[in-house]
Design a protein around this nucleic acid. Sequence first.
DNA 1: ATAGGGGTACTA
DNA 2: TAGTACCCCTAT
Length: 390
Amino acid sequence: MEVMDKWVAEFFIRRQKNPRVSPTNLLSALKFSESAGDCSNNLKKASVLRDISDSLIRGNVSEGMLDLLETLEKLHQGSSVLTESHRSAYCWTAAECTVRLMWPSSASEGLYGDAVERIWTKRIGVLKERGSGLVSEELLKWEADLRKAVEDDEVYKRIRESNVRYSAVCFLNQLLKEQWAVLGSCSLESVAQRMLLKRRKADKGSREGPNGVGESTRRLDEGEKENDAAEQEEEEERTMGSAQEQGLVDEGDEMAARELKDYLLEIQRQIDSSFTRQLQEPNNANITPQPSRVNSTRTSGQQQDSASESRVRPHLPTPEPLNVSPLKKKRANPAARRIKKFWTPEEEAVLREGVKEYGKSWKEIKNANPEVFAERTEVDLKDKWRNLVR
DNA sequence: ATAGGGGTACTA
DNA sequence: TAGTACCCCTAT
């Protein structure tokens, strides 16, 4: 049944607009065995792509992105050549991670020197050692320029003015587009398409003239072309719904279809319930299975029934609420005040940089630097800026 | 989500 | 008492 788990996991990871499902968490919760080669690899690729995409949506182009790009490269090893967009995305993201720290007017102040060390000497040094394909000419050129900027204030100022971030984002988007296309249909979708094919055959054999066949063909073509994740889901529903209504597919497929649909509903319920249930005690590592089920053969609790079709349900960890405000995190009783904490020079610097980049969008600035501003609210940023400009 | 008024703690 | 830095509340 692990194959089924993988299909569903893949489906969820591919599906957009589901921020509660973090690919990394989902995969670690499901604990797949490493054995099942190709399937696992695609699953991992999909999960890395989702992570990149999520990061991008949140406007977060940081060193974590470099980790993801390196992971993606490793997943490709042996199977295919690195694409140009992958190399460029890595190169410009690395540049952006360095250039974003050019907030002081000269290289000798601030964190720039550290960043060059950390990213270009250590991180990219490792890449060079293992002969990574990510080390492109473009990358080496950037390295030379950024190193020159440590010494030469003219070069520093020139680079400081350029909009590296924009290029990085463009290349990352390009990479995503290409990689999703290469991955093709997800397994669930392929199954749905196969079922459509079968039904079309059945249609042809049992009833109707060329009209019905033409209709089915058109719908199949749609399914093949559209790769948008939302569409995939609709395709799923339609296929399974009609498979049940018409009873035209053979029994095995029908059972599989029910199974899949059940499974999806189950996971969706778990996700929904963990969304609404945040006030409960924090030590519930496992989610209690929901009692209501269509076919109520299951007992509640950890043990599953022993029937032949029993399967292991995934136990998703309760997601950490995103971005808990320090206001709420720190104090349980609303009477107390937060402890006064002075701003560090780093926080100040990152704030200046943030305002330069985003303007007075305090929330965006905070989201772009979640670690630095972990203890600050958007309002804090606003207040601090008020102080700084006074 | 953000801007602005105002409170608290501290310093000189 | 005034000035500063940080924090909180509330109207828009």
